[in-house]
């Protein structure tokens, strides 16, 4: 009975969370962020402001979900912060809300985002004010990411490119390793786990798990790619080797 009630409560809390996220998104996407373009003319200042806002909004959203009792979480490895300049925050991607946590943890970092969000009227002002990186053009994505890292930026990346497929070994696309080596960037691995699993790829919001999901974020110490792969390799070989090494690192640490 108690469990049944808890289930109903979490279903309600989840619905409310999605509703609030949508409402907040609507207000920010149609009022706050368009207003940023009117009031802040300098793109760099606008970007700083937009990212700080997004970070705070996502932190608030997480606090709401936690207080509603729809999820709980713990974050380890905060001593490994702040993220040094020219580093890629590399994370696995089990659930829909990983990105909410990552943006609240690393609000200043660049994010690679689906390019259709630049064409969607509700999100276009958000992603363009925050000046994130669209994913449509392979060459452009590589170049922009590399340039931003070299100029001292940090970059949030899910090397899988999309949410993990439950029950299948995680598989990294070669982009993250290529960007890391081309930019001479360091890597900050963030391992995400969620138990019981929820909001995986293709799962609807109302398919909530039997118990409250618990998210764990493990922030590792920064790694230098040159410690992971041989220095005598040719650049292409090195990129493939680094990709395998990163993938292996995550496979060893992710438990399902």
């Amino acid at each position: 009975m108690k469990q049944k009630l808890n289930h109903i409560w979490r279903l309600f809390g989840t619905a409310l969370s999605f509703f609030l996220f949508g409402l907040g998104g609507l207000l920010m996407g149609l009022l706050l962020f368009p207003a940023l373009f009117l009031f802040i003319k300098d793109p760099t200042r606008r970007q700083t402001f937009a990212r700080a806002w997004l970070g705070r909004a996502f932190s608030l959203f997480i606090a709401i979900m936690k207080n509603l009792g729809v999820l709980s979480y713990s974050i380890r490895g905060l001593e490994n912060l702040p993220v040094p300049a020219n580093s890629i925050i590399v994370a696995n991607h089990p659930t829909l809300i990983d990105v909410v946590f990552l943006i609240s943890l690393f609000p200043e970092a660049d994010c690679v985002i689906k390019s259709n969000l630049w064409r969607n009227p509700f999100t276009r002002f958000v992603v363009s004010a925050a000046n994130h990186i669209p994913n449509d053009d392979g060459a452009g994505l590589l170049q922009t990411s590399t340039e931003r890292l070299r100029s001292g930026g940090t970059l949030n990346l899910f090397p899988e490119g999309t949410r993990s497929t439950p029950g299948r070994e995680l598989r990294f696309k070669p982009g993250a390793a290529a960007i890391a080596l081309r930019a001479g960037a360091k890597l900050l691995p963030v391992l995400i786990s969620c138990r019981p699993m929820t909001l995986t790829k293709g799962e609807s919001w109302y398919h909530i798990p039997e118990h409250k999901p618990f998210f764990e974020f493990d922030i590792f110490a920064v790694m230098d790619p040159s410690d992971l792969v041989g220095t005598s390799m040719k650049p292409r070989e090195k990129e493939k080797a680094l990709n395998r090494a990163m993938q292996q690192f995550f496979r060893e640490h992710v438990q399902d």
Partner: peptide
């Protein structure tokens, strides 16, 4: 065995 980065 060309991957997406090779294609770019």
């Amino acid at each position: 065995e060309i991957d997406s980065i090779d294609a770019v």
